[in-house]
């Protein structure tokens, strides 16, 4: 690992000031992603500013019926919190499907939002990767891309976002609160938080330099009864998803009045299935509707050389997740 300065900020102002003073500094959450990448020489910060101890560890209910999750709270404490289990079981289920108990204990919610792709070319500094080294080329585009995107990719980057938590957040609909150096705050809609590669594959999200994530806002709970997180992977735990689907249904008088649907492992950002959600709204929770929603969702899939399977798998996964969500409490 390259040498770096370790700064333990006492409060958020100090943290922000330290970040503003050093262009190559990075915030340190649980370190489960950042430290790994530093060992691999992929991330090379000259300074780490520890933010995990700054507070922002609460889960609060809001006046609008929603909840706010502190950014520095651990993934484990978030997923196991009674309010989250009761009102946002979809989020809980997705979070608990990720990594291992040990990693979830360390990982913070803020860090999870920013975890980087697991594209092997990104991890190996001797290979080209536009995300790691802009302009060096995308090794995966014409290389080994079985684990890569089927939606929203371009020649610049075909990587996928690896987070499970973010897939559930996309289905639920969330907002990210950030603090800026100048003392102001801003709120980013979750669908605008992560981005597609575009001509800036090095940027995973729309966070500006030095911005500190302080919280995740959740809307009034809608999917506490009918929800399912389906994660397809090679082994039963401790593996990233080949494909995952977060499905939430709000059913009233036998009809779907609201659907939340997002996929993981398919795009550079958590992939919200807006068209399928719209299609399902007002429909009966029946297999043929689920199948049609899946068809709609996958219509624009553009598989790469090695990941044709994701299209078939994706359809099946959407139908299964919706069915499980429906049957969960039916």
């Amino acid at each position: 690992m390259r040498p770096f300065v370790f700064t333990q900020a006492q409060n958020q102002e100090q943290a922000l000031a330290a970040a503003a003073a050093n262009e190559t500094a990075k915030y340190l959450g649980g370190g489960t992603n950042l430290i790994d990448l530093m060992k691999e020489d992929v991330e090379r910060p000259s300074e780490l500013i520890e933010v995990a101890g700054l507070g922002f560890q609460e889960i609060k209910s809001n006046q609008n019926g929603g909840y706010t999750l502190g950014a520095m709270l651990s993934n484990a404490d978030t997923a196991n919190h009674p309010d989250i289990r009761r009102h946002y079981p979809l989020l809980s289920m997705a979070m608990l499907s990720a990594a291992t108990a040990q990693i979830r204990n360390m990982a913070t919610n803020g860090g999870n939002l920013l975890q980087r792709t697991r594209c092997p070319y990104f991890y190996e500094t001797s290979m080209p990767c536009n995300k790691r080294e802009p302009g060096s080329g995308c090794g995966a585009r014409n290389g080994m891309n079985a684990l890569h995107a089927i939606f929203g990719w371009n020649e610049q980057c075909v990587a996928v976002n690896p987070s499970d938590m973010c897939v559930a957040l996309a289905a639920i609909g969330a907002k990210v609160q950030v603090q800026r150096v100048n003392g102001t705050t801003r709120t980013i809609d979750f669908s605008d938080f992560h981005r597609l590669p575009g001509d800036q594959p090095e940027a995973d999200n729309t966070l500006q330099p030095n911005e500190l994530i302080t919280a995740i806002e959740l809307p009034k709970p809608a999917f506490s009864k009918h929800y399912y997180y389906l994660k397809i992977r090679e082994r039963s735990s401790y593996a990233f998803a080949l494909i995952s689907v977060a499905a939430g249904l709000q059913i009233e008088n036998g009809t779907i009045v609201r659907a939340g649907l997002a996929m993981g492992g398919v795009a550079h950002k958590p992939w919200k299935l807006t068209r399928a959600e719209e299609f399902l709204t007002g429909k009966l929770p029946q297999t043929k509707n689920f199948e049609q929603a899946a068809e709609l969702a996958m219509r624009e899939a553009r598989p790469l050389e090695d990941n044709e399977y994701k299209v078939e798998m994706g359809k099946k996964a959407i139908v299964r997740a919706l069915t499980q969500a429906y049957e969960k409490n039916a």
Binding site: P120, E124, G139, M144
Partner: peptide, 20 residues
């Protein structure tokens, strides 16, 4: 093995999966 560069792209226990 990466077909062009000849390196193992599975290079840690995060991507070389053994049973849990």
């Amino acid at each position: 093995i990466e077909p062009k560069y000849g390196n193992f792209i599975t290079r840690s226990f995060a991507d070389y999966h053994v049973p849990v």
